[in-house]
């Protein structure tokens, strides 16, 4: 029973990812696209967590942690680039 519920939750999150993709393609401005991409990162962490429960495995958390860090660092780096045209001042 719990398995089915987690499966439904994964479907919902997958739908959220599709909405993000739409926002990413639609824009209209650069920060909008960046926000959509960052949300996409966070949603994929949510998907990984759900998959961890679904497949009863601990292995996915390290992947989720890595995705979280990469997402944060890359978003901030692109923000920096758009603010100054330079990543490291």
């Amino acid at each position: 029973m719990l398995n089915q519920i987690v499966l439904v939750a994964m479907l919902v999150i997958g739908f959220a990812l599709l909405l993000n993709l739409w926002a990413l393609l639609r824009g209209p401005s650069m920060p909008d696209r960046l926000l959509a991409l960052d949300t996409m990162y966070i949603n994929s962490i949510a998907l990984l967590l759900c998959y961890g429960i679904y497949s009863v495995s601990n292995l996915h958390f390290e992947a989720a942690l890595l995705v979280a860090m990469l997402g944060f660092v890359s978003t901030v780096a692109v923000c920096k680039f758009m603010l100054r045209g330079d990543i490291i001042e």
Partner: peptide, 26 residues
């Protein structure tokens, strides 16, 4: 309670993504 938390989490994630396409400005 786990099931409720999972569903609530998924719905909040969906809400965040929905806000992204529905609201009018950045």
């Amino acid at each position: 309670s786990i099931a409720i938390l999972v569903m609530a989490g998924a719905l909040f994630v969906l809400l965040g993504s929905f806000a992204l396409i529905k609201l009018p400005d950045f």
